[in-house]
């Protein structure tokens, strides 16, 4: 059980607000950087806010084949990402006891379950395809993510995310950081695993599932995926940032690292083509092997 203390609630609220406010901005920055690499001027970094606003002013439509699950799925997905936000102290608050690694991982599981159900609702092949591929990719990426996180937890002998902050700052941590970075890319539906920009049936995964949505419900989905991306990058940064006593300096370094990661994601997305779906298992396997290697280096000497 978590001890309900006011400061914890305060920190959680702040975390949620930060995530809610800044996650579209991260998306915007990535797009901006990408357009820079594509030699375009691109939209403003605040364009995602505009997009969301646009979505929320429109009418909601969903497929006529769908049921109540389609209606609730966006909210569930959104709520579960927000829960993940609370369960993970990316601001570096060190007193909470409920910051649990496994629950954190399973928050994504909840969202994934319902988004896949929503994808199957429409009855068209696109949705089904999206769901099917999403579940396959999750079955690949989740173990790899867990290898990384468990390895880190092993290094600090605790599965409390609180204790795992900055735990990746070591030599095997570099290996872990690579695989973690790949997972961040994969989980936030980016190239080379998924392409967030196209609606081409051969490539789409995440977009396929929400193809039949429009208006506010679609907006929620988009918002949720930006939220997820934000959380994952924040997770990555806070784990692999150095442990510094000075809070101001620490937040500053984290901020810089955050921007760096965002830049890296955009950079990689600009130079990497979409990978074939059935190349992914090998890709993730290699990533997982990196994690296992890291564990070996850590503990078997």
């Amino acid at each position: 059980m978590v001890s309900i203390n006011p400061s914890l609630i305060l920190v959680s609220t702040i975390q949620v607000i930060i995530a809610l406010v800044f996650s579209p901005l991260v998306s915007g920055i990535i797009r901006k950087i990408k357009s820079y690499f594509q030699s375009r001027r691109g939209a403003s970094i605040f364009q995602p806010y505009m997009d969301l606003l646009k979505f929320f002013t429109k009418e909601s439509t969903i497929s006529e084949n769908s049921s109540i699950i389609s209606v609730f799925a966006p909210f569930i997905v959104f709520a579960s990402y927000l829960s993940a936000c609370v369960l993970f102290p990316f601001l570096g608050f060190k007193n909470g006891s409920g910051y649990d690694l496994i629950t954190f991982i399973y928050c994504f599981g909840v969202a994934r379950f319902f988004i896949a159900l929503a994808g199957m609702e429409s009855g068209s092949s696109f949705g089904g395809m999206g769901s099917s591929r999403e579940m396959m990719i999750s079955a690949l990426s989740e173990p790899v993510l867990s290898i990384v996180l468990f390895a880190l937890s092993l290094s600090v002998l605790s599965y409390n995310l609180n204790n795992m902050l900055s735990s990746g700052w070591s030599i095997p941590g570099i290996l872990l950081s690579i695989s973690m970075f790949i997972i961040v890319i994969a989980e936030s539906s980016r190239l080379p695993v998924d392409n967030p920009d196209t609606h081409l049936e051969l490539t789409m995964v995440h977009e396929g599932m929400i193809l039949e949505y429009s208006g506010p419900l679609l907006g929620i989905f988009h918002y949720a995926s930006m939220l997820k991306q934000f959380i994952l990058i924040a997770l990555f940064v806070s784990i692999f940032s150095p442990n510094i006593e000075n809070i101001v300096l620490a937040i500053f370094i984290k901020f810089v690292l955050f921007l760096l990661t965002v830049f890296l994601i955009a950079f990689i997305e600009s130079i990497v083509p979409k990978m074939r779906l059935f190349k992914l298992p090998g890709f993730f396997f290699a990533t997982g092997i990196l994690g296992v290697l890291a564990i070996l280096i850590y503990f078997i000497k």
Binding site: F56, E59, S60, T61, I62, S63, E64, N65, S66, V71, S122, G123, S124, L211, E212, P216, L217, I220
Partner: peptide
């Protein structure tokens, strides 16, 4: 509050 549940059902695009 924002009336997101006023949903129109349309045929799926096939």
């Amino acid at each position: 509050i924002f009336g997101l549940f006023e949903i129109r059902k349309v045929p799926t695009w096939g």
